[in-house]
Design a protein around this nucleic acid. Structure first.
Lengths: 127, 127
DNA sequence: CCGTATCCGTGGCGATACTG
DNA sequence: CAGTATCGCCACGGATACGG
């Protein structure tokens, strides 16, 4: 699906962490082991189906591990694998850039709204 | 859409770089200024519509700039903004993790396929 | 408690044709 | 050359009900 090796490797990383709630899940698991229900309560808007699906994908990518305790009522605990922790620096880099980006866009918007004439933003063009 | 600040900032970054061809576009533009048609030829499978859409989004996020030359036939050049270059370290981090991940999954698959019995992978469970 | 099964809505993307 | 306009598909995710 991709031709040049760099973009390809980048895509592989994104495939692991992209998903509507994957970052929220990882965020919780970086805090420590969590049961299924703890994850669900930690992310109030997620449904069980999607939570399960995301957890299976992360497990498939060896980022998290799933331990089923043979008890009644059932107990299932999720935690990061040792390998999963290797994501941390990369995620931190993303987070830092995101923070900076939020600030960048905010100050950009300020500059725009402070212009006296709403339509004095000429399209960039050259003759 | 997200509650805790870290995941939220992470999401902001992802929103900028996620898109089927955005990384490919950025990869080309990191090489230097490119015309619309150069981008299109550099990414053979992309359609003009989607290329345009992605470029507009990147422009909206202040990652790239678009310069229209008032000529016939028309010429439009795209290039990274100064701010756009600030993505580079983060993208490199993603790329490196992706490379490592590809290797990790490869060696994991090897270990699996070398097991004598196909179904001797017990589900992780504890009593 | 921890899921699976089913149905369905939406948005990202593709294909194709047209335009200044 | 550098787009826009239309139409259509399909994977992702949401809602709800059921099951071990």
């Amino acid at each position: 699906m991709e031709h040049n090796p760099e973009s390809c490797m980048l895509d592989k990383t994104l495939n692991v962490i992209v998903g509507k709630w994957k970052l929220a899940i990882l965020h919780l698991l970086f805090q420590g082991t969590k049961r299924f229900s703890e994850l669900q309560h930690g992310i109030p808007d997620i449904t069980k189906k999607v939570l399960t699906a995301h957890l299976r994908e992360l497990e498939e990518d060896d980022i998290i591990k799933r331990i089923v305790y043979a008890e009644v009522p059932p107990r299932v605990e999720y935690s990061l694998t040792e390998y999963g922790y290797s994501l941390q620096p990369t995620l931190q880099s993303l987070q830092e850039w995101g923070s900076n980006h939020a600030e960048h866009m905010r100050s950009k918007r300020e500059r725009q709204s402070s212009t006296k004439f709403p339509d004095d933003q000429p399209a960039v063009s050259v003759e």
